[in-house]
Computed example of a mutant assay.
Amino acid sequence: MASVSDEEGIPAASGSPDASLTQDDSFTATSRAGLTYPWGDAAPGVGETIRIAPGIRWARIPMPGSLGHINSWLLDDAASDGGDGVAVVDTGVCLTICSDAWKALYAGALADTRITRVIGTHLHPDHIGLAGWIAKKKGVQLWMTRGEMLTARMIVGDTSDTAPDEALAQSRAAGWDEAAIERQKSEGWGRFGLMVYPLPRSYQRIKDGDVLDMGAHQWRVVVGSGHSPEHACLWNEREGVLVSGDQVLPRISSNVSINITEPGADPLGEWLDSIDKLIATVPGDVLTCPAHGEPFKGLHVRLMALRDEHRMRLYNLAEAIAKAPMRAVESFPLLFNRPIGPDQLGMATGEALAHLKRLEVEGRVQREDRDGVWWYHGVA
């Protein structure tokens, strides 16, 4: 898969200049697991957008891999000079499949529409992979929280031909066998940077509680964490719309992991606190616009389901450890509903360590270091 060239222009693409659909285009609402999807399984096509509420349109950027796409949310933005335009929220990975989708939008639904700013909900490549490219081509600023921007810069620059000692030590501690360790050594380190177009040296900081004034619409920043350090959700209180990024997804649970960047962190504790914060802050009847999947209603239902799912995993894990000590790798059957192969081993380990850390913090298990391997015991 080719990356986006720095000199790449925006050639003409197929699509009508008026390719924006509306709520009235015969969409059929569906319900599933207590959530309502006003547009059913529909999604905007190449070069198209769907206006889902006043002040916001929905575009979908295709990506390789199991997720298959990221949703980009286009917020109506009247800039300080009084001109109309759109702010882009999340962009896709730095690959031609994603940049081609943006070219189709520029020639289709966004023809003659000015891009006013780029907003990254958080640091992962599917969200900011093309943020620098769009910001540079359109001459606009990137807006992010400080925790996301600085962490992104750190990870982008962290490259090596072999896995660092810290990563190998954590894998051994989690119980990886020697074959897995050797495979990790040979895979190299720093793929993150390959999926992100160079970020601008300067950015506009946003923080929890900020209100982004876009003229007719105001979006309040609501920060969560656990999936990433300082994830920004955007809430339009007047219109009842929440752009949730990866902080709330309708059908899958976001990855919550410990990694070598902050090995002593308690990301699952932060995630659970963020769920409680969102329930207390944002009304349950908002239209939630996630990064993956379809817009839905039933925010509090989904948040409580996510909380209950993790709480049940923690309960099952604590019960099993009370009967017999285990390492992180032995917790996989209790946490995941499928076998973990080599391709999923790193992510599964990060999630397992996050659950075990939460049990430690809650005083329900103790960790013992046996020659660099961590064993978890029940607490009498």
Rank of each mutant, 00 (worst) to 15 (best):
S225G: 08
N71Y: 00
M1H: 08
A173M: 07
E362A: 15
L299G: 03
E270G: 09
D81E: 05
S20N: 14
E294M: 13
L334Y: 02
R146F: 14
Y376M: 14
A180H: 11
L212N: 07
C94S: 12
L75F: 07
D371W: 05
E294G: 08
I56G: 04
V329M: 15
L67A: 14
Q247W: 07
V221P: 01
G65A: 03
L249E: 01
W143G: 07
P54T: 13
A107D: 09
A232S: 12
Q23W: 13
S20Q: 10
G15W: 05
S228A: 12
E330K: 08
I321D: 01
P125Q: 04
I10W: 12
G298P: 00
D213G: 13
V118E: 02
D165E: 14
N259C: 13
D24L: 15
E368K: 10
L353P: 02
G372W: 01
Y106V: 14
V223M: 09
R313M: 13
H377K: 13
P333H: 06
G47L: 07
A101G: 08
I279Q: 00
A152W: 00
L234T: 04
S80W: 10
Q23D: 15
T281Q: 05
S26H: 14
I321P: 02
L335E: 03
I155E: 00
Q344N: 13
E187K: 13
K323M: 15
G188W: 01
A101R: 04
P125R: 04
Y376S: 04
K357R: 12
A179S: 13
N337Q: 15
M214L: 15
S99C: 09
A305K: 06
P250Y: 00
D76A: 12
L130S: 02
E368G: 05
V86Q: 07
A79W: 00
L334C: 02
L67V: 15
I56T: 06
G269H: 07
K138I: 11
D158K: 02
A324K: 15
R358C: 11
Q184N: 10
W374P: 02
